[in-house]
């Protein structure tokens, strides 16, 4: 009976893994297709869709824009979010819990609501520049991810260590850098990774803020699928998957995926 139970569980696990990976496998396969339509299984294999990427200017622009917005908003959130998290855990602020919950609230609001709110707010403040509006909105989107992981890391951090470092001859900033930063690095990295991805593939908020010339990748991809559904989209997706794997390997080398997952 126990043997049967364990076998059953393994079977379910196998199915779930297949279920999760199958779409990715299909996209990867289609990206090497020789056909001009999105057909599976592909009639033959070629690298023509990767080659055609070189000429897909609007697509490359979108990749570049999304990368910029994601990287910048993540960086801003990391700095601001960490400072806020330190203030919340150490600053003896009245209602610190409420503040922490509020900072994480964009995660709980539907993206649509945020998008409309940002559109309206940008108009009312006279903010015409699409790029800065997108960036500000994405800082709000990424902030909860940083807050969550950094707060969790800080709650495990004993600030007496900073005192210990100071008594051993390090100035306060140097003590933070040599003791606090290495100890909450897993929180930084996993928070940063989630934040980057949340910004990079955000659709519901961005859709309200983009214009014809400034489009983020998810929006550009959807446009492309609607207008000319060829496997260029699949090729882009395949490259993104490759990028993600590379990022995970870097993170693993940096802090170890095990430590990241435990935050």
């Amino acid at each position: 009976m126990a043997l049967f139970g364990s076998l059953f569980c393994r079977l379910v696990l196998g199915f779930v893994i297949v279920f999760l990976f199958l779409p990715i496998l299909i996209v990867l396969t289609v990206s090497f297709s020789s056909s001009a339509v999105f057909a599976f299984p592909p009639p033959g294999f070629s690298l023509r869709w990767y080659a055609s990427l070189a000429n897909a200017d609007s697509m490359l622009q979108a990749v570049w824009l999304s990368t910029q917005i994601a990287a910048l908003s993540t960086a801003i959130s990391l700095v601001l979010g960490t400072l806020c998290a330190i203030a919340i855990t150490r600053g003896m602020i009245p209602g610190a819990k409420v503040v922490a919950t509020f900072m994480a609230s964009p995660l709980m609001l539907p993206g649509l609501v945020l998008g409309i709110a940002f559109l309206q707010a940008a108009r009312d403040f006279g903010l015409r520049d699409t790029y800065s509006t997108l960036l500000i909105a994405h800082v709000v989107i990424t902030m909860p991810f940083i807050m969550r992981t950094v707060l969790a890391s800080l709650s495990l951090f004993d600030f007496a260590m900073v005192d210990a470092a100071r008594m051993l001859g390090r100035s306060y900033p140097a003590a933070l850098w040599t003791v606090l930063v290495p100890n909450i690095l897993p929180g930084f990295v996993s928070g940063g990774l989630f934040a980057f991805i949340a910004s990079f593939d955000n659709y519901p908020v961005s859709i309200f803020l983009v214009d014809v010339r400034t489009k983020t990748l998810p929006i550009q991809l959807l446009n492309q699928v609607e207008m000319s559904p060829d496997p260029t989209v699949a090729a882009i997706s395949a490259l993104l998957i490759l990028g993600t794997i590379a990022a995970l390997i870097v993170c693993d080398r940096l802090v170890g995926l095990k430590r990241m997952a435990s935050i």
Binding site: D158, A160, M161, D163, A164, A165, M167, L168, V179, N183
Partner: peptide, 10 residues
Amino acid sequence: GVVFQNYALF
């Protein structure tokens, strides 16, 4: 030098 209550080892 200080020896802290919970040692505060790194």
